[in-house]
Write a protein that binds this DNA or RNA. Structure first.
Length: 209
DNA sequence: AGCCAGATTTTCT
DNA sequence: GAAAATCTGGCTA
């Protein structure tokens, strides 16, 4: 697992998560999703990765995209937990969130990094690199590796669609927490969660003890 | 390992 | 017009 060239988790049995499996609280969901699996099924095969890093953007959070209310861009955050919110940023990157509260309440969990499990060749093609450590380390890279763009904004990740959340039997791990990355407001809240010791986690070393 | 500049365009002030 | 939940490549601030 720590060796990026190894693929010990290939050919996993992955079970779809149901909405009832998801905690109904944003910070709890962010922690819960660490260690779960993001799957994209395509005609040519499957892309899958273990979620190793998340951030919670909670209700009333000035750093959250829903802070100033519903808009065309952020409407998917208000769909009720388990839906995709895909946004475009910095002129060239998409990022994927999981909406996290009841319908009508805007909040979400940003998926920041994956440990690639299946479809590494396809991910490498989309990303333009063969370095496994660079396939999905960071939210923009994650979306690009999984082929997630605006067409997935608002889709139900707990439905029967091609993009979904799952779980599988994986070795035990510990979850660490830290402040969030890349924001200018609410910078001291410990709402980032990650797999301790994983080389697939983004961010500076001081945030990944 | 860590810091910096530049890329590039949507969204909201 | 400014900021933005980022990434890449180059340099060592």
């Amino acid at each position: 697992m720590a060796d990026p060239s190894a693929r010990p988790h290939a050919n996993l049995k992955i079970r779809r998560l149901r909405r009832a499996d998801l905690p109904g609280n944003t910070a709890a969901l962010a922690r819960y999703l660490v260690g779960k699996i993001l799957v994209r099924d395509m005609a040519r095969g499957r892309l899958a990765g273990r979620i190793v890093e998340t951030e919670a953007y909670v209700v009333g959070d000035a750093a959250g995209h829903a802070f100033r209310g519903l808009s065309r861009r952020n409407r998917s955050l208000f769909l009720g937990r388990g839906h995709a919110y895909v946004y475009f940023t910095y002129g060239m990157h998409y990022c994927l969130n999981v909406s996290s509260e009841r319908p009508g309440i805007g909040a979400g969990v940003l998926l920041r990094a994956l440990e690639p499990l299946e479809g590494l060749e396809a991910m490498a093609r989309r990303r333009g690199t063969k370095r496994v450590l660079d396939l999905a380390r960071g939210p923009g890279r994650l979306a690009q590796a999984m082929g997630v763009g605006p067409e997935f904004d608002g889709v139900d990740l707990c439905g029967d669609g091609p993009l979904w959340l799952g779980e599988a039997r994986l070795p035990r791990f510990r979850v660490g927490s830290s402040v969030r990355i890349g924001i200018a407001k609410e910078t001291h809240r410990p709402l980032r969660f990650y797999v301790r010791g994983s080389p697939f986690v983004s961010g500076p070393k001081r945030l990944n003890p």
